[in-house]
């Protein structure tokens, strides 16, 4: 018996990362733009997505959503009212979505028939951080009722996100939310993040977010399409 050292240099979650890369390639080939939506429970993921799905569909886009929850399919039923294709993943206690759950859920779907896919993650600002789901954009939501210092309490999630959406803006005044401090705190843990402000109730700010999503999809299609041969 001999003892030896074996160099590995591999991420602990390399299996999830590898599967996510496969899924990302499938999304790219099908031309689907994918957003992974994360937040604490009650920040308004479902309410915002209800609005976004409805408006995108009204504009003629083909949209779908996959919803993760520990229990119940209430959120999926709410989102399905928009007319979009919606499927629920009940994690039965697991606090985050992993990519194989999403891949399984999409098994019977024709991705080519979609323009946008939204993945509503389990409400949790910690555990979903590590799990790449093959998304193009990770959006972290933070409601005005949650306290300006939340990004400082959960820096890892905010750091790992591409955009931050401050939700429930219609309640900002009632909650005495210091929006300047909230924005500063978000930027201090992720200086490269882009911040949006929305109210799913009034619809304020939603068009700006949708415009961003449309631009991102167009940019994705432009970068993944094969350039014409000369």
């Amino acid at each position: 018996m001999t003892t030896r050292y074996l160099e590995i240099r591999q991420g602990v979650l390399s299996k999830n990362d590898r599967l996510a890369a496969d899924l990302r390639a499938r999304f790219a080939q099908a031309g689907v733009f994918v957003m992974n939506v994360v937040s604490s429970p009650g920040a308004g993921k479902t309410a915002l997505l209800e609005r976004v799905l409805r408006e995108l569909r009204a504009a003629g886009w083909r949209v779908a959503a996959v919803v993760g929850d520990l229990q119940t399919d209430n959120d999926a039923r709410r989102l399905a009212r928009s007319g979009a294709l919606v499927s629920q993943i009940t994690t039965d206690g697991m606090c985050h979505l992993e990519v194989d759950l999403v891949t399984d859920k999409l098994a019977g779907w024709d991705l080519n028939a979609l323009d946008f896919l939204f993945i509503e993650n389990v409400g949790n600002l910690v555990c979903p951080t590590w799990y790449d789901l093959g998304e193009d954009v990770r959006a972290v939501l933070l409601s005005v009722a949650e306290g300006e210092d939340k990004p400082l309490k959960y820096p890892v999630m905010f750091h790992s996100s591409d955009i931050a959406v401050i939700t429930k803006m219609d309640l900002a005044e009632a909650c005495e939310c210091d929006l300047t401090a909230m924005r500063e705190n978000i930027l201090s843990v992720q200086p490269a993040i882009r911040i949006f402000e929305t109210s799913a109730k009034t619809g304020a700010g939603v068009p700006v977010l949708i415009e961003f999503i449309l631009q991102q999809r167009a940019a994705k299609l432009a970068s993944t399409s094969v350039p014409p041969t000369a």
């Binding site: 003892t3 050292y5 591999q10 602990v12 400082l152 201090s188």
Partner: peptide
């Protein structure tokens, strides 16, 4: 809590280290 340069206080989005969750190697 803040990605600020300790010398000048400027925010930086260029993270060189700190997100590692990596198996360097094993002894068998």
């Amino acid at each position: 809590q803040g990605l600020r340069c300790p010398r000048c206080g400027e925010l930086s989005s260029r993270l060189l280290h700190g997100k590692e969750l990596e198996i360097a190697g094993i002894e068998i």
